[in-house]
Design a protein around this nucleic acid. Structure first.
Length: 202
DNA sequence: CCCTGATTCGC
DNA sequence: GCGAATCAGG
């Protein structure tokens, strides 16, 4: 595939949104993350920084290294009056579930944990979760990898456990089920068919 | 191990 | 210009 106008635009957009190169590559299709990164650099829009500049440029100096003329950042394109949101505060990583201090999260973090995550499951609200599923969860949570927010990836279960305001807070981190944001056990409680306790007479 | 971007260099 | 291979890190 080639870098058509549209593809480049999508690339710019996503990169600007803080998407990772691999995610962009996936979205575009037909290219690897390397291709994306290469293109990003060629386009000159590599700096996504704003706070911490990196002065340490050349840790390894090659003999006869070409000096960098410091290409002016992409900002001179009067030809295209495109309102581009260059700066985005969006660090879309901020779960603040009001999980009860008990062992069971009342509400899984349903803020976007990963920028280009899958569509989040319908809010089960104060759904009643089947006892079996709950038991299952309690089981696996013992084996949870207890990952920190930063350790989460597209293939780690993003189910939050504990109170975010406490040290005792972590994410499941077990391998996710294909295409889902959670591991099998947590998918079980997250995606309730909403018919948990059907014919319950009580 | 999973992942991230950065750089190099043959094409 | 392109991107795989490689590097350097988290």
């Amino acid at each position: 595939m080639s870098w058509t106008d549209e593809r480049v635009e999508l690339l710019k957009k996503m990169w600007g949104e803080g998407q990772s190169a691999s995610q962009i590559a996936k979205e575009l299709g037909g290219v690897t993350r390397n291709a994306v990164i290469g293109k990003v650099h060629r386009l000159g829009l590599s700096n996504r920084n704003s706070g911490t500049a990196k002065p340490a440029a050349e840790p390894k100096e090659k003999p006869a290294a070409a000096p960098k003329p410091a290409p002016a950042a992409a900002a001179a394109a009067p030809a295209k009056p495109k309102p581009q949101p260059k700066t985005e505060p969006a660090r879309p990583v901020t779960p603040e579930p009001a999980a009860s201090a008990e062992g069971r999260p009342a509400t899984p973090a349903r803020r976007q944990i990963i920028p280009a995550g899958q569509p989040l499951p319908p809010q089960p609200s104060a759904n009643e979760i089947s006892p079996e599923a709950l038991a299952k969860v309690n089981e696996i949570e013992k084996k949870a990898k207890k990952l920190g927010l930063m350790e989460l990836t597209e293939r780690t279960c993003k189910w939050p456990v504990g109170d975010p305001a406490t040290e005792d807070f972590w994410f499941c981190g077990l391998p996710v089920q294909q295409g889902k944001p959670y591991c099998e056990a947590h998918v079980g409680v997250a995606f309730q068919p909403m018919s948990a306790r059907r014919d319950r007479k009580r």
